[in-house]
Design a protein around this nucleic acid. Structure first.
Length: 276
DNA sequence: AAAAACATCAACCGCGCAATT
DNA sequence: AAATTGCGCGGTTGATGTTTT
């Protein structure tokens, strides 16, 4: 509580003098959302620093931009990160590191902020719990050769149970045994880099066009269903409705599967122990 | 039932690069 | 050529909700 409030920090761009130098911070209200939404509907994106001037909003350009990108923008998706998405985040992060916006480009509707949050609240947290450095080779290898294949299994299981059982396609990246049992085949590098995700694609409908670092574009299953409606004439309220829709859909099947269960973590732990 | 500890996520900040003046 | 402004990124914080004690 020590800092914050007032504070201009950034340059005094707006206003010559102090006509209204009070800048609103914190959560956005529905009214503000509505004003911003209308402004962008008319003027388009960009020119963020003009928003306050035109609309009377007492927000910085930065704040407006962020609100638009992370919340108001049509088709933005929040919450219930699917297994496929989780897998993708892990995969892309393994090659690009903390390049959140770049990673986000490959996850339709997801924002860099959300991906970053996911990484910090799940992956980093997990590493900590295992007393690992997230960036250590040990941890990263384990993610890649143990965790991700395991995720893939889940995805495949999901896919075959939800659709009808088709393709058995148990890929060769299958390091399995009972949770926490011993005996785990260390699943060494049967998947070299681009290997196993593209393999997944056939089974799971994750279309990755050869995941070479250039441009991998995936289309996630289920993705189509949510992005279709809304968009045009919506104010904040419409938004909430839409979101509830998401949660419901996601909750009933595809999304929100939590990989970070005790069982799985236990398994991870085992692997780490082995490797060391 | 209340408090404390923890988890999540929206929003802020500073920095650096690019475009404009 | 230098200064100013705009923008986007990545790291971090804090309010709120949830779980544990």
């Amino acid at each position: 509580m020590e800092r914050s409030l007032a504070e201009n920090g950034s340059s005094g761009t707006y206003g010559s003098s102090e006509e209204e130098m009070s800048i609103t911070k914190g959560p956005w209200t529905e009214e503000e959302d509505s004003v911003l939404f209308d402004y962008i509907t008319v003027h388009g994106e960009g020119h963020w620093n003009s928003v306050a001037r035109y609309t009377g909003l007492k927000r910085t350009g930065k704040s407006c931009r962020l609100r638009w990108l992370n919340y108001l923008r049509p088709n933005v998706r929040r919450g219930n990160i699917t297994l496929q998405e989780q897998l993708m985040i892990l995969d892309l992060h393994s090659r690009w590191g903390n390049r959140w916006s770049k990673i986000a480009e490959h996850l339709p509707g997801r924002t860099d902020n959300e991906i970053k949050n996911y990484w910090r609240t799940r992956v980093v947290k997990q590493a900590k719990q295992l007393k690992c450095d997230v960036n250590s080779k040990q941890f990263r290898d384990t993610l890649r050769f143990v965790w991700m294949p395991r995720m893939l299994e889940r995805i495949q299981a999901q896919a075959s149970s939800s659709a009808q059982a088709q393709t058995t396609l148990v890929s060769n990246v299958q390091a399995h045994s009972d949770p926490c049992g011993g005996a785990t085949a260390t699943a060494t590098a049967s998947a070299s880099d681009a290997g196993f995700l593209s393999e997944a694609s056939s089974a799971v409908d994750v279309h990755a066009h050869s995941l070479s670092d250039s441009g991998a574009s995936y289309s996630l299953m289920g993705g189509g269903s949510w992005c279709s409606h809304g968009a045009e004439e919506g104010y904040g309220r419409v938004w909430e409705e839409r979101n509830n829709g998401y949660s419901e859909i996601a909750g009933s099947g595809f999304g929100g599967v939590d990989m970070w269960t005790e069982e799985n973590i236990c398994f991870l732990q085992q692997q780490l122990a082995d490797d060391f």
